[in-house]
């Protein structure tokens, strides 16, 4: 296949000129972001180049086992990254792994079962990465919010427990609000798609010379799958993680409330 856009390494390096502008702005406004920018550029170069080789090798092998392993690695890294944002949630890693794995398995399973994509590495790897990435963000936001909500509502939660409510009944409100905060950003961006912003897949396909309506069809499938995966991830993460704040005797753990805000 002939690529529609053929970039030399020199041309890629030339785009660093725009990073230089960002660094200059940072220097001028004393935002102190120059080294952060440097690290971001270096990491994106190393990580994307490495994953480029990995994906090329997986595409060449056409092995779905390798794809499954790559997706598992993504779930693992995604869960660890999300846990950093949810440090104040006791025992968050287990719920996060389950949330990300379920979101990936259910959404990928559905689009493959519906025959939207062929079950080949060329489709499963990028779509899986997109699903897991969005699920990670949603799960992290939901748990981060959950910790804040439990802390700010601890009086009301304890007052409810004192009436004989279970931990689950006492945390219904905080779980609901955490779920909403995780899902609203994607719902809003889905609402404004094509008006305020153009999603990445569509932009990529248009740049690569695809027919606009083909690009739109694929983008819709991805957008709607992402909505589903984000919902699954946030629901599972919050439904399991709230238990970490309580003892089996339906007591709010004091230690959970003393953890610093993430």
């Amino acid at each position: 296949m002939t690529p529609a856009i053929d970039l030399s390494l020199g041309e890629v390096a030339a785009s660093l000129a725009l990073v230089a502008i960002a660094a200059a702005v940072s220097l001028y406004r004393r935002a102190d972001l120059e080294s952060e920018l440097g690290v971001a550029v270096l990491r994106s170069f190393i990580q994307l180049t490495a994953i480029g080789f990995v994906i090329q090798a997986i595409f060449d092998s056409r092995s779905l086992w390798l794809v499954a392993m790559l997706l598992l690695v993504m779930v693992g890294f995604g869960s660890i990254t999300a846990r950093r944002r949810a440090r104040a949630v006791p025992g968050a890693l287990g719920p996060l792994v389950l949330a990300l794995a379920s979101a990936a398995a259910l959404t990928l399973g559905l689009v493959l079962a519906l025959g939207v994509f062929e079950p080949t590495p060329r489709y499963v790897v990028p779509v899986g990465g997109m699903v897991i990435g969005n699920a990670m963000t949603a799960a992290a936001v939901s748990l981060n919010r959950l910790a804040d909500e439990v802390r700010s509502s601890s009086g009301r939660i304890e007052a409810t427990l004192a009436l004989g409510a279970t931990a689950r009944q006492a945390s219904e409100g905080v779980v609901r609000r955490s779920l909403r905060s995780a899902m609203i950003p994607l719902i809003d961006s889905t609402k404004t798609t094509g008006v305020v912003f153009f999603p990445g897949t569509m932009v990529g396909m248009l740049l690569a010379g695809a027919d606009p309506l083909d690009a739109v069809r694929l983008q819709l499938v991805l957008l709607w799958s992402l909505l589903g995966s984000v919902a699954i991830a946030a629901v599972i993460a919050t439904a399991l993680a709230y238990r970490g704040f309580f003892t089996p005797a339906h007591q709010l753990r004091e230690s959970a409330l003393e953890t610093p805000i993430a």
Binding site: A159, T160, L163, H250
Partner: peptide, 20 residues
């Protein structure tokens, strides 16, 4: 049973915490 105990010996908190 802890839930039953809390019904029988019910705590009224220092700060009012009404539900919405």
């Amino acid at each position: 049973d802890v839930l039953e105990l809390r019904r029988r010996a019910c705590l009224v908190p220092q700060l009012p915490a009404p539900l919405p």
